[in-house]
Amino acid sequence: MRIEITRIEEILEPARRRLIWSSLFVALLVNVLPWHGWALNLRPDLVAVVLLHWCIREPLKIGFGAAWVAALFMDVAEGSLLGQHAMAYVILVYLALLLSRRLQMFDVRFQVLHILPILVLSQLVILVVRLVSGADFPGWTFFLPCVTGAAIWPVVYMSLEIPRRSRRSFDRE
């Protein structure tokens, strides 16, 4: 059996904690931007996407604790039930940590196929929590943020790797 190496993995500098936290901060900032009209239904949960990225790329440096704190901030920012995002992000982080080795083998395009179901599942957790606490089903547009979240995955993936490229690899190019 021959294993074909389709792409040469670039060696990146290890992510600094500062980078991880500041990227989460920027994601939170984008999430609370004043959106209007139809964009309100489409806007992806950037915090979830960034969390996914770090859990897959640096599973040793980030985990449930960071996700939980980020979720607390999301809940307060949105005025939703405290713990609703925590529940969703905990599931999300679990799946990402479980699949991190496997996902690193894939190309970005194929990673999207994994990201979408993970995002849908975490959104489903939010839906279940709210339905149990007595809300109405808000319609299928509720799942649109998962699709847009998966769509921006390649962009997030690439842009979070830029600061980790070492100077030497830039010189080689």
Binding site: V32, H36, N41, R43, A77, G79, A135, F142
Partner: peptide, 11 residues
């Protein structure tokens, strides 16, 4: 400041 993201409520 912003519209809350929570689709279950209008806030």
């Amino acid at each position: 400041l912003y519209t809350a993201r929570d689709v279950f409520t209008q806030k």
